[in-house]
Design a protein around this nucleic acid. Structure first.
Lengths: 244, 244
DNA sequence: GTGCAGAAATTGGTTGGACCATTGGACCAC
DNA sequence: GTGGTCCAATGGTCCAACCAATTTCTGCAC
């Protein structure tokens, strides 16, 4: 590690300066997502600030999803950083009621359709192969575990978001995914939850492989529609309140 | 083995607990945005945690825009909080390059299309009348000011988001709108920026009035497509870098 | 009483040092 | 190999100060 890439900082606005210095460091060292950055103690020493200040700065980055801290292990880069990043922290007054869940699904439907369409436009042969691989894994898991393939299912969708070439898709949907799963852990009493959506994964893939954006968009819409139907059936069964 | 049957164990989550307690406090005291919440020292004492831990928690809230800290004065609530907020920190790399702008536009295209479709499904006669009113105002402004109708244009779209019945559309797009306008104030040197999109506002309205979700979706896609074209022309003129 | 300058208290920001809990590797007995 | 134990490294928490900005109070001049 080049020690000159971590010069001491100068004035007030300490933690901002720490982050700025850290951006410079990441670029100087060409750190990639997944790599570990220096320990808090080293950063504090090099930047001539207290470790608490370093921690406040890293806490902000962690909140933005730029970094992940693992106790006993280190702090790891989670996304690419650049000097002119724009942060748009969006907090939605979501609820645990059925209505809010449907609202998130409507957003997901919009993004899923667009991502699939963009994916069909832009996928390289290697991308298509990668998506097919995820699809095979998912279908395999679906058959052997009789429908419980949520993890593999999610990876399939993530692959599509990535190939869409627009990182915002993954960021937004990942945030909603977490909310969704607070509810989804127990499939709302619907035994075969998600079964209906299964075939559409392959049809989406086929449209992508055939470079058919409109088709991919349409199939993605159908997929989410089946999830919405499942959700409605589950809500009806549980007599879930439709309002908070 | 079902991976879900062995979730990661939850050990320590001090600052999360602090935030949870703080949510409870805000609700118990019915604090409104703008009001001051207890000092860090008091929070630390009451919650039986160190002040550092309180600060890390507040730093996270500050990063999310929920709270504002003023040295010497106090910490003030900036937005309403609820126990089940959904946090969506979006960071887009490279603020003013063409690629990032296109990324935000792709998200907007997805949401705009879906909002228009939902709007066509759900609009009441009163809603339709309201949208038409906004449309008339926009068209009037467009004609008298020769294309400079961004404010009225925005209100027309907002009306559609509202009628869609899903508040998330407006929240997400509003956040991106602000971001977008930091660079959009000057229409990238394209003199008639936005002109091409003008007729589609009325066609979208007509589809909504005719309760035609598919048509509304298609027209919304066309509208954004014209904006994308304008943007590309502007980028070509300015020789804007397509990468960071 | 009023107005205002300066002192004092309040509050977030920073520091340095200490200890705890977890992680992951090294090492060892089996 | 396998399974333990130990140990150093690292993030998480705590404490007790002090600094810097702000607010509030005090007391004096008028």
């Amino acid at each position: 590690m080049d020690q000159n890439s971590l010069p001491p900082i100068q004035t007030t606005a300490r933690d901002d300066a720490v982050l700025k210095a850290l951006v410079g460091f990441v670029r100087a060292e060409a750190l990639q997502p997944g790599e570990r950055l220096p320990t808090e103690r080293i950063l504090a020493e090099r930047l001539k600030v207290s470790r608490n200040t370093v921690r406040e700065a890293l806490t902000r980055w962690e909140g933005l999803g730029l970094v992940e801290r693992r106790q006993g292990s280190g702090t790891y880069l989670k996304a690419a950083v650049s000097p002119d990043m724009l942060h748009m922290p969006l907090t939605l007054a979501g609820g645990n009621d059925f209505t809010s869940l449907m609202h998130t699904l409507e957003i997901r439907r919009a993004l899923e359709a667009e991502a699939a369409a963009l994916c069909a436009e832009r996928a390289s042969p290697a991308d298509i192969a990668e998506i097919e691989r995820k699809l095979d894994i998912m279908e395999q898991a679906f058959r052997t575990r009789d429908g419980m393939s949520s993890e593999e299912d999610w990876e399939f969708h993530q692959a599509i978001y990535r190939v869409s070439g627009n990182p915002l898709f993954e960021q937004i949907i990942a945030a909603m995914h977490e909310l969704f799963h607070r509810f989804w852990e127990h499939p709302l009493g619907v035994r075969d939850f998600g079964h209906a959506s299964f075939p559409y994964h392959r049809t989406i893939y086929q449209c992508i492989a055939a470079r058919d954006p409109q088709g991919a968009r349409a199939e993605a819409l159908k997929l989410i529609a089946t999830v919405e139907d499942d959700l409605k059936r589950g809500a009806a069964k549980l007599k879930l309140p439709s309002q908070t």
